[in-house]
Amino acid sequence: MGAGLPFAYRSGVRCFDVNDLYNLGMYSGRSDTQPELAFRMLFRFAGRSVVDLLGPRVWDFRVRLECAGCEGAAPWRFEAPDVVRFGGRVEDVVAPSVGEGSASYAARVTSVGARTPLVSPVLRKLTGEYLEAGYRWQMVPVAMQADYELVHRLGVTSCIAASLWLAERFRAAGYRAEAKRGWFCGVLGGALDLPHACVEVEDDDGVLKTVDIAKAQLAARLSPDTADFQDLCVGSVYNKVIASTASGGAPFASHGCGSELPAGVRADIRAVR
């Protein structure tokens, strides 16, 4: 607090922003804070052979939807898993129906990885320039991430902000590109639910590629032996990510009841062994 970390009093209790606390721990240099320990665990896989990320993986995919301030029964809109175009499958789907208050979505999802590095010198140059620009990855509120110009002016980045920023530069260079949201799977038994996004771009060879810029940044920072994984993030798809139909700055779900509050979305995604 003496160094200026903002806080507010609520009912006499000193409260901090959760994103501020994560970022403070992440860059404290102590090595024993919860954010540092969690992210080292998160990226243990990135130092292993990437072959394990290329085969099919099956997930028990469940999402709980909540409508805060619900104003009555109405249809739900949910941006479902979108893995078929990358060779995956979505089966046994139970989609939300008309209702109020809360709903759920469930499916068995098979994700598949594929090594498809970027071939365009222009796309590789733009991606490399971004990675070398020195933006510091931080936890950023989801609503703020959509204002990617503001986020980058602060010298920081996040998966959504980075994907929106890079997609814009790909389009300015003449490529069809869009930031897309999805889920990063198999982390802490499904207990860690972090917003995730990447860029989808049509490369010079006519193949749709994905650039997972934030995961490449984090892997480079948190583990010294992740060069193969970082390269995989620049064009390829890997089986720990489930793409969705949501665009980069859009929410995963909404409820048509008229409530002005955003729908709550909590994913529980567990590997089927």
Rank of each mutant, 00 (worst) to 15 (best):
G134V: 07
R30Q: 09
A46T: 15
P35T: 05
K209Q: 04
R85T: 11
R136S: 11
T157W: 02
Y238Q: 06
A103N: 08
E260K: 08
P35G: 03
A179V: 06
L123P: 04
A263R: 03
S247G: 14
S104N: 10
F184S: 06
P56Q: 07
H152W: 05
S254L: 03
S259K: 01
E132D: 15
V109K: 02
T110W: 02
A271H: 11
F39H: 08
L123V: 06
A38Q: 09
V98W: 08
T116L: 12
S49H: 07
V119Q: 14
D268M: 07
R124D: 03
A267Y: 12
T210C: 12
V18Q: 12
R266I: 05
M41P: 00
A191W: 09
L54H: 00
D193A: 08
P141V: 03
P195F: 02
T33D: 08
R181V: 00
D268T: 13
A143T: 10
A162V: 09
L150M: 13
E66M: 01
A197W: 00
Y9K: 12
V142I: 14
E129F: 02
W165C: 00
F43H: 13
S11Q: 13
V237N: 04
W183M: 09
G69S: 04
V58C: 07
V122H: 10
R108T: 15
L42G: 09
V272C: 12
E100H: 08
G190W: 00
V63R: 00
L192F: 12
M144S: 14
E71C: 04
S236V: 08
D147V: 00
N239P: 07
D204R: 05
L150V: 10
